[in-house]
Design a protein around this nucleic acid. Structure first.
Lengths: 127, 127
DNA sequence: TTGTATCTACGAATTTTTTCGTACACCTTT
DNA sequence: AAAGGTGTACGAAAAAATTCGTAGATACAA
C-alpha cells in the first residue's frame, strides 16, 4: 500500500474511475468513453495515461499491439484520501457538516438511508 | 446569487475559509494565518487575493493604507457546489457512498450523530 | 529629514496540468 | 506493394495556478 496515495488530478480521476468500473482497459476504451462527455484528442488521453503510469498510478502490460492499463491504487484508498483532504479544506474538518449537506441535497434511496442509519447505530454503540 | 459559483482552487479555498471564519480581513491577517501551515511569501497571498477580487470571489474596501477583503461567495453555496462536483468525480455520483465513508473514518460527536439521525428521519418522512 | 516598516501594484518567472502534432511501427485490405 | 487504419513515443505548446521580485506610496519613529 503506497504510503502516499498521491492526489490524482481531476483528469486522472476520470481515468481511474473508468478503470475501477470496467477493469483493465486499453487507451482506446478509456478514450472512447471519456470522449462522450469531454472534448479531447486521443493522444491527450494516451499521454495522460502514460504519465499516470510513470507516477505509479497505473501499470500496464503489452497485449499484441496495444497496452492494457490497470489501476494501481484502489478506489477505497483513493476516495479515503481525497475525502480527508476535502473535509479539511472545504468543510474545515467537520465530517458531520459534510454529511448533512450531502444528505440534504443529493438523492438517496430508502435502502441507503437505512444503511446509514445502521452505521450510526454501530458508531454510537462502540463509543 | 451568482449562477456560476466558479470553482475556487485549493489556494483560493484556504483564503475563503479564513474569511468565512474571521469575517472581513486584511491581506496581512490572512497571510499571517496561512503562513503558520504553509510556506509562502506575503506578496503571493496578496496577489492571490487581488486575482480573487478580479474574479468576483472577494470584494474590498480601502481602510486607511490597507484594504479590507470580504468573501463574496457564501460558505454554504461554495460547499454545495464543490460537494456536487466531488460526489460526481470521486464517488461516481453516490452521495450515500460518500456519507458512509465519511462517517466511518472521521471523528463525529454523539450530538452530531443525533443531528444526522434526525435528518434521516425527516428525509424518510417526506418521501 | 532620514531611515525603517508596511502597504499596494504589477510584471514576470515557475510549476503544474492539459493538450496536441508528428514520427514511426505494424496490421489488414486492396 | 501501396494505402489506410490503429497503435505507441515523445517533444513541445498552451493553459492554469502559484510564486516572487521590485517599485513606489505612506506612515511613523529616531
Amino acid at each position: 500500500m503506497p504510503s502516499n496515495p498521491s492526489k490524482p488530478t481531476d483528469s486522472e480521476l476520470e481515468i481511474l474511475s473508468f478503470l475501477w468500473q470496467h477493469g483493465p482497459s486499453t487507451v482506446r476504451q478509456v478514450h472512447d468513453f471519456l470522449a462522450k462527455t469531454k472534448e479531447a484528442g486521443y493522444t491527450t488521453t494516451l499521454k495522460l495515461m502514460q504519465i499516470m503510469q510513470e507516477k505509479g498510478l497505473l501499470s500496464r502490460t503489452e497485449e499484441g499491439r496495444s497496452h492494457i492499463y490497470t489501476a494501481q491504487v484502489s478506489e477505497e484508498e483513493t476516495q479515503q484520501s481525497l475525502l480527508g483532504r476535502f473535509v479539511e479544506t472545504a468543510f474545515r474538518g467537520s465530517a458531520a457538516q459534510l454529511v448533512m449537506q450531502a444528505l440534504g441535497t443529493h438523492q438517496t434511496s430508502a435502502e441507503e438511508l437505512d444503511e446509514i442509519r445502521q452505521l450510526l447505530d454501530n458508531l454510537e454503540n462502540n463509543r
